[in-house]
Every structure is written in C-alpha cells, then in structure tokens.
Design a protein around this nucleic acid. Structure first.
Lengths: 99, 99
DNA sequence: TGAATATCTGAACGATTGTTCATATGTTAG
DNA sequence: CTAACATATGAACAATCGTTCAGATATTCA
C-alpha cells in the first residue's frame, strides 16, 4: 500500500511532464490542426504561420510523449494524432474552459 | 464557419494556459492529494514536504483556472477539487502514461 | 551523381516560471 | 485589544523553455 502510493507519487512527475506538453500554445495549435487532418511539417508551418524549424522542434516534443506519430510520404513526413486519448484530453480541456 | 474557426483559434490559447496549470509537478501533486481528500494549506504543505508559501502560490494559480475551490473552516482554509472535469483530465493523463 | 526539396538539430538569447524570504493580511481565543 | 496561528503576497533569483539562425541530414528526380 505504501508501495502503491510511491508508484503513484513517481508517476505524478511523468504526468506533469505530459501536461506540460499540452501546455504551450504552439503545440496545442499543432495538435488541434492534426485533430482535423494530417499534415506535413511544411504545411503545418504554413497553416500556423510559423517557421518550419519552430514547428519541427515542437513536433519532436509531441512525438516524445507519443501525442503524435508520423510516416514518410515521398519527400515529406506526414504527422497525425497518436490516438483517441489525445483527442479526449483536448476535448475535456475545451469543455472546461467553455463552462 | 470562418468565424467559428476563429473562435476556436482564440480558445486554443486559453486551452494551452489551462494545461500549463496541470503541467507542473507541484501543482499535479496538489491536485492528486486533493483527489483523495480535502486539505488545509498547511496540511498540504506538510503532506507534500514543501513550504506553505510555495503551496499557497500554486493554489492561487489552480484557483485562477477553477481547478480547485476553497472554503473557510475556522482559522484554516480548506481546499478541494473544483469538479469532476479535473478528475477526468487527470485520469486520462494517467491512462496515457500507463500505456 | 548533383540539384532541389523537406525535415531535423544544436547553440544562443530573451522570456517565462517556481521557489525562497520577508512581510502583510486575516481569523480566533484569551 | 493582543498574542498566536493560518494564509496570502511581492520582490528577486535561478532554472527552464520556445524561438531564431545557421547548417546538417535525408529523399527524390533528372
């Protein structure tokens, strides 16, 4: 039981890191864009009016937390939302701020 | 429709701010402690092994985003989780990292 | 192979953030 | 009212973070 609590306690640090990944406007805008459709890096940069480099840096973080995945498509690399978990978390967040 | 999109676009900044509130280990530990029971500020500080000041600063942030509420109880102020939304978001997050 | 295109990456800089320290505010009991 | 307790707050400092810039890596096609 005390053991179980410690496991949870350790997990909380990872949890904070996970939410930190959601907690940046650029990354949220990326995630929301991918909510609607898949994007190549350049298209994402254009769509969000940011440099390709900035987007790439943030995609790397999102990938580290398994919030997005990607696959090669010719010269481009197509990014997509990792799973419905991500969709649910974003949806819950939107519900909260819309209250 | 274009109008609707802009509304969403603006909301995304608030959404990032909301997740930022979850994205700190101290605040997550506070939220998780309150997941289990209500706490006065001092008890929370003791429970988490942190100064009262640090906890108070973070509680202020959590309150700003309506993640916690409080009520006076004699000399103390008892903090509690604002609603089930918060519980759900935390639960979803834990599920994600446990995958 | 070499040019063109697409993406990634490291260093650096400015901005933001969490904690500490000292102190202020608020509440209760004597 | 005053002492004691509980919480809140402002300033300051160190650490973390996101963007830019320059250049590296990877893939395609002629």
């Amino acid at each position: 039981m005390a053991e179980n609590r410690n496991v949870k306690e350790d997990e909380l640090y990872d949890l904070a890191e996970l939410f930190k990944a959601f907690g940046d406007s650029t990354r949220i805008r990326i995630l929301f864009a991918l909510f609607e459709k898949d994007y190549a890096v350049n298209d994402l940069a254009e769509h969000l009016n940011m440099t390709q480099s900035a987007i790439s840096h943030q995609l790397k973080i999102l990938k580290r937390f398994k919030l997005v995945g990607n696959s090669r498509e010719g010269k481009s690399r197509i990014y997509f939302l990792a799973d419905d978990h991500v969709r649910t978390i974003i949806s819950m967040g939107i519900e909260h701020i819309e209250e």
